[in-house]
Design a protein around this nucleic acid. Structure first.
Lengths: 213, 213
DNA sequence: GTCTATACGTCGATAGAC
DNA sequence: GTCTATCGACGTATAGAC
């Protein structure tokens, strides 16, 4: 699921050695994402990951040094996909608030939030991983910042010199709502995210139009 | 830490059998909260929990059926503390937006966010636990809803008939910002939460003052 | 009620065959 | 490159002494 977009898992011609190994890696990463989401990092065994991918333990260890290395690789792939998602959003619509509600609904139904929680915990518990992750998250964060910046410039009156990280608020709100919806869908209606963003931007615009203490 | 407020761990007179056992339970729960935060649910061993509390494995199993039971109890205690926190906030100040920034900073430095992430994952993976947790979270959620309702009524013009769960937005934003600050403190300035709430409420007020499509 | 000792299973990782 | 077999470490849970 997570990695199959990088490489076709069912190519038509015979595979070279390198291609076959890369395919095994990809399948192991996909399987790991699923098992980690279901069992958690510590709860997932190398054996289950390997068997889910259709391989043996030996195949696993010929592709990864250990479970940690695979997890970090999964983590970076995850970040890369976040970049792609942000970029896609920016390309399709630069309006900043349209169709985001649906994205929330979709996100809450996937394994992603589980993996993200797992990644977050792993990062907090392994500071050296946290710095590496922060490094990789810089690009998607900048992309979101640009997107939010454009939305602010489109306000009436335009806001161009704001020094508060509104994009961080947006990202945090999204992540928080996704988690809440996962455990209690009824408490997070489909339009809630859109509505909250609308208010947030309206509040910023109102403050600029008529500054108050 | 988490449970010691319920019972004095160093009473002055001699303990009865029941009191001694209850004290052991409490100490085991405190230790478990710490170890779960550090190692995660699956990663925490019963042995480490028991030893952190100053007891043996046998003492653990004479107080809890297994690790799961202790975890669920910890979960409910956690929810109860959330209620207390919400209530305290409501009593001290009904302003809805004052001093909340500091609460964010404090929360990000504690073990709480780690435990919450662990609890969330556990709930998502164990649906029967999720429903029980949702039940226990109803009271603090209602408390927050009341608090936010009062803040809305204090707006100009007052908002009294809103059918959007603003309190869910507030809670989700808080949780999201706490997590973000934990892995990258610089990205979440101390005033960000207060500022975001200010904008959110200003946006709601602006919409009511001058409805727009 | 709590401790020590231990049975039993599972997991991570390795070695050697193919 | 991948598989099977296996080792050593560790974890849960129990049994019986005190």
């Amino acid at each position: 699921m997570l990695n199959s977009q990088v490489m076709d898992v069912q190519p038509r011609r015979r595979l070279t050695r390198a291609e076959a190994k890369a395919r095994t890696r990809t399948l192991l990463l996909d399987a790991a994402a699923e098992v980690f989401a279901r069992k958690g990092f510590a709860g997932a065994s190398v054996e289950e990951i390997a068997e889910t991918a259709g391989f043996s333990i030996g195949a696993f260890y010929s592709n990864f040094a250990n479970k940690d290395e695979l997890f970090v690789e999964l983590l970076s792939t995850h970040s890369r996909n976040q970049i792609a998602e942000s970029a896609r959003l920016m390309d399709e619509r630069a309006e900043g608030k349209r169709g985001l509600g649906q994205q929330l609904i979709n996100a809450a139904d996937e394994d992603f939030p589980l993996l993200e929680a797992e990644f977050w915990l792993y990062s907090v518990r392994n500071p050296q991983v946290a710095t590496a992750l922060a490094e990789r998250m810089r690009e998607p964060r900048e992309a979101l910042k640009t997107l939010v910046g454009e939305a602010l410039r489109r306000l009436d009156p335009p806001v161009i010199d704001i020094d508060v990280p509104v994009s961080v608020v947006v990202a945090s709100l999204f992540a928080g709502l996704v988690r809440q919806r996962r455990i209690d869908p009824d408490s997070v209606p489909a339009e809630l995210y859109d509505q909250a963003l609308h208010w947030l931007f309206a509040g910023i615009a109102a403050e600029r139009a008529q500054p108050q203490g």
